[in-house]
Simulated assay, not measured.
Amino acid sequence: MNLDLTNMLGPSEARIGIDVGGTKTQAVAFGPSGEIGVAHRPTDTAGIAGITATVSSLVDELRLLPEADSHTISAIGIGIPGIVDTAAGTVSHGVNIGLAESDVPLAATISRATGVPVSLANDVTAATIGAARYLGSSDDVALISLGTGLASGLILDGIPRTGKLGSAGEIGHIPYIPDGLPCPCGQRGCLELYASGHALTRAWPQGGKHPATHLMAAARTGDADARSVLDSWIHAVAHAVTLLGLTLDVQEILIAGGITEVGAPLLEELRGQLRRSAEHSQFLRQMGLDSRVRLVPRGAHVAALGACLTTF
């Protein structure tokens, strides 16, 4: 783990990285030696006013921490779902956080509210940048975020790839099941309806606050219903991995999001499905996608770190 920012920050300077999610927003203050404070709260998805209130409250909370007394907050980086125009500071089609409109001027609005310069990045792009830094990964990485939705972040030849419109990596909205479930994006059968954390919770509601852990345990103790749900979900996640592997042939494919709380059993199930898919295909066996998959450790604040790094 490399969180030394002494070459990027002044001795009393700090910057905040914020990860806005569909259910929770997390903010982390970083000083020259790494993290100096963490705060989180439920995301208010009542449009731009709700997101601004959520972020402003977290910034105020971090400023009040004793560890932050000797630091001046010089910038805020925000990772947020949707199509982000970094130069304009706008977000479009953030349907999971109540920002379904186009070109919402979020950076300027939050900057006025906090009195600090604000930059925006797509949340999964931020997570990919942070995870690559945290894990010391190569310059050729794709990250799949299994959260409320499903999307991928990309670093190709050392450069984050966001695309012409900022929508690179939105694999969750590639149709997976013909004429399947309706998606808020307007299509049907989108991959995130079957491979996201929200999809798992919907398919296994009896799991409570930790559905992935509960489902994995039940499946591994012989519960036939749990095994069926897990197999369907893992198949969809493996499809996402295969999609990225065959399209980009990246060196590493990282798996992040709340689902990673399951740890090694999740990685074992996913690698097993990838190997089974390759049993009758020499081409897929040669690709060796199962050996390229890696989990981002649960509890690592990679999205907030990446958001912070985008401010430099």
Rank of each mutant, 00 (worst) to 15 (best):
G263P: 06
G263D: 06
K209P: 14
P205Q: 08
L191Q: 01
G245Q: 00
H239Y: 12
S281C: 08
V241Q: 06
W204M: 03
W233R: 00
R276G: 11
A240W: 09
P182I: 06
A224T: 15
Y194W: 04
Q206D: 13
R202I: 10
H214R: 14
G186F: 05
A195D: 02
L266W: 06
G208N: 09
T260I: 00
S291Y: 09
C185W: 02
Y194R: 02
S291N: 13
C190H: 03
A195P: 04
G288N: 14
L266T: 04
C190D: 01
I255R: 04
H235G: 12
S277D: 13
T247D: 07
G172D: 04
L215N: 01
H280L: 15
R202T: 14
R292F: 09
M287F: 14
I177R: 12
K209T: 14
W204E: 02
Y176C: 03
G257R: 03
Y176E: 05
W233G: 05
H198Q: 15
L193C: 08
L289H: 13
W204H: 06
E261L: 14
R275I: 02
G257Y: 00
I174E: 05
S281R: 06
P205Y: 07
L200A: 06
A168E: 07
L248I: 11
D231F: 01
S281F: 13
I253S: 00
A199T: 03
W233H: 13
S228M: 08
G189K: 04
T242K: 08
M287D: 09
V241G: 03
C185D: 02
Q206S: 14
L267D: 07
E252D: 14
L244R: 05
L248T: 00
A256Y: 01
L244S: 01
H198G: 14
Y194M: 01
P182Q: 11
P265S: 08
P178D: 14
R276E: 15
P178S: 14
A168R: 01
E170R: 02
A218D: 11
I177Q: 15
P175R: 11
H280P: 07
G272A: 08
T247G: 15
M287Q: 15
A240F: 05
L246K: 07
L248P: 03
L200E: 02
R202W: 11
A236N: 04
L248K: 00
A238Q: 03
L274M: 09
L289K: 09
G263K: 04
V250S: 10
S281M: 11
P184V: 06
T201F: 09
G186V: 03
V237F: 10
L246S: 12
I253A: 08
A218I: 08
A168P: 00
G180D: 02
P205C: 07
D290F: 09
V241S: 06
F283H: 13
I234A: 06
H235R: 15
G189D: 00
K209C: 09
L200N: 01
D225L: 10
E269N: 09
R276W: 10
H239E: 12
I259Q: 06
E268S: 14
L248A: 01
A236H: 07
A217I: 06
G169F: 05
